[in-house]
Each structure stands twice: as structure tokens, then as C-alpha cells.
């Protein structure tokens, strides 16, 4: 509520987000649209607890998370949130399966065997169980994004935050990734917030929020 993000330097003050009030329901698939630089990615980062707002509060599951310590924020991200980035952000030195099981490394009480099992399940869900030992640079863009989705869902997060997940993909691959997210939302009930430029993709989601100059316009 009342989310504000202002970037300050010695001479300039830039308002990236101005008084944003937004409510996203559990199990909803929402897309945020707007021109470049309108603040939609900044909002997504704040919603994902990767960045702190200058003002306002974020409430998830009726719990305010704005004032949590760094350590608690890390644990919260690990348990509740999953991220899908436009440029995949896979670790090139790790194999596909190692990339996918990464979030579980930071969760206590999960054995190596269990991690492997769950990573395989996640890869099966995205149709990449045959590529476990490949490295990211051996995969196509669409495959990389599916690996990123597998990584995002391995910890069974309640909320998926996707920042232009189809932005780097051609239309066929983009369609494939979009369908996968729709499927996850429908079958697992995962709440998804997606930032996109693509109106066609946005139309497939349950609700579209428009942004302009750091403000929500619809």
C-alpha cells in the first residue's frame, strides 16, 4: 500500500513509483504493462523483496514484510517466492539440474537425494527431463527459460514473479513459455505476477494493470 520509490543523488531526485496501491489475490495471474521506464520492473523487484521501497508497505499473506531483516527476507524469498527473469539468469558453470535445485540449497532439512528428486520433477513439469546434464549454453532460449521456470517452481512458491519472461524469445517459444505459466497457475494455483510489453501475452492473464510514469493508470 502507498508504495513509493524515489532514487536520489546529490542533485537529482527521480520518482520511479508514486503512491502505488495494489491488491493481488491468491491464485490470480496478473500482468503489468506499460512503456519502458514506467517503473513496472521496479515494482516487481519491490514485490519480490529484492529492492526496498522508499515509502509504503507490502503485505503478503496478511503479514507486513517491509521491515523484515535481510536474513528473514532471504528466508521469505526462498520459501514463498519464485523468480523468472527476462535474461534467464542461469548459472553457466552449473548443469541444468544443478541450476534447478539451487533454491533448495538454501532451505534446511532437504537432503541431496531429495533435492535431485524434486529437481527432476520440476524439469519434467517443464518438459526438459532429458536435458538434466546439459549446461545453459547448450540450450536454446526457450529451453533456458523453461529451466528458469523449473528453478522458480522447485520450492513450490506461492507467488511467481516473472519479469518479461517472453521478452527474449521468438513468438513460438514465447507462446510455449506462456502456456507453461498458465498451466502452473491453473493446476497448482500459483499466484503469478508478470511484467510484459506484449499485449497478446497480457491478454491471456486474468487481469492487466497498466502503468505510466511510475503510476498505476488502470
Amino acid at each position: 500500500m502507498n508504495i513509493e520509490k524515489i532514487y536520489r543523488t546529490n542533485t537529482i531526485e527521480t520518482t520511479a513509483l508514486n503512491n502505488i496501491n495494489m491488491n493481488i489475490n491468491k491464485g490470480e495471474f496478473v500482468s503489468i504493462m506499460g512503456p519502458s521506464g514506467c517503473g513496472k520492473s521496479t515494482l516487481l523487484n519491490i514485490m519480490g523483496l529484492l529492492d526496498a521501497p522508499t515509502g509504503g508497505t507490502i503485505t503478503i499473506d496478511d503479514k507486513s514484510v517491509t521491515s523484515l531483516s535481510r536474513k528473514k527476507l532471504a528466508a521469505f524469498r526462498n520459501l514463498k517466492l519464485g523468480f523468472i527473469f527476462q535474461s534467464y539468469h542461469l548459472i553457466n558453470d552449473l548443469s541444468v539440474i544443478d541450476n534447478v535445485e539451487l533454491p533448495l540449497l538454501y532451505r534446511s532439512g532437504i537432503s541431496g537425494v531429495e533435492r535431485r528428486k524434486r529437481a527432476l520433477e520440476a524439469l519434467e513439469k517443464v518438459g526438459l527431463s532429458a536435458r538434466t546434464k546439459h549446461y545453459p549454453n547448450q540450450l536454446s532460449g526457450g529451453q533456458r527459460q523453461r529451466v528458469a521456470i523449473a528453478r522458480a517452481i522447485i520450492g513450490n512458491p506461492e507467488i511467481l514473479l516473472a519479469d518479461e519472461p517472453t521478452g527474449n524469445l521468438d513468438s513460438a517459444m514465447g507462446e510455449e513459455v506462456m502456456n507453461l505459466m498458465l498451466h502452473l497457475n491453473k493446476t497448482d494455483g500459483t499466484t503469478i505476477v508478470m511484467v510484459t510489453h506484449d499485449e497478446q501475452m497480457a491478454k491471456k492473464t486474468q487481469r492487466v494493470i497498466h502503468f505510466f510514469d511510475g503510476q498505476q493508470v488502470s
Binding site: 519480490g48 529484492l50 535481510r70 536474513k71 532471504a74 528466508a75 524469498r77 526462498n78 520459501l79 523468480f83 539468469h89 542461469l90 548459472i91 558453470d93 539451487l102 533454491p103 540449497l105 538454501y106 532451505r107 528453478r151 520450492g155
Partner: peptide, 16 residues
């Protein structure tokens, strides 16, 4: 740095 960013996004603490 990118790897560190990814790890942090998915729950790695500074200590880890």
C-alpha cells in the same frame, strides 16, 4: 556478480 544476484534472489544470505 550475476551468479551472486541469482543466489540472493533465491534465498542465499550474505553469510551463506
Amino acid at each position: 556478480a550475476e551468479e551472486i544476484g541469482v543466489r540472493k534472489s533465491f534465498g542465499a544470505t550474505s553469510g551463506t
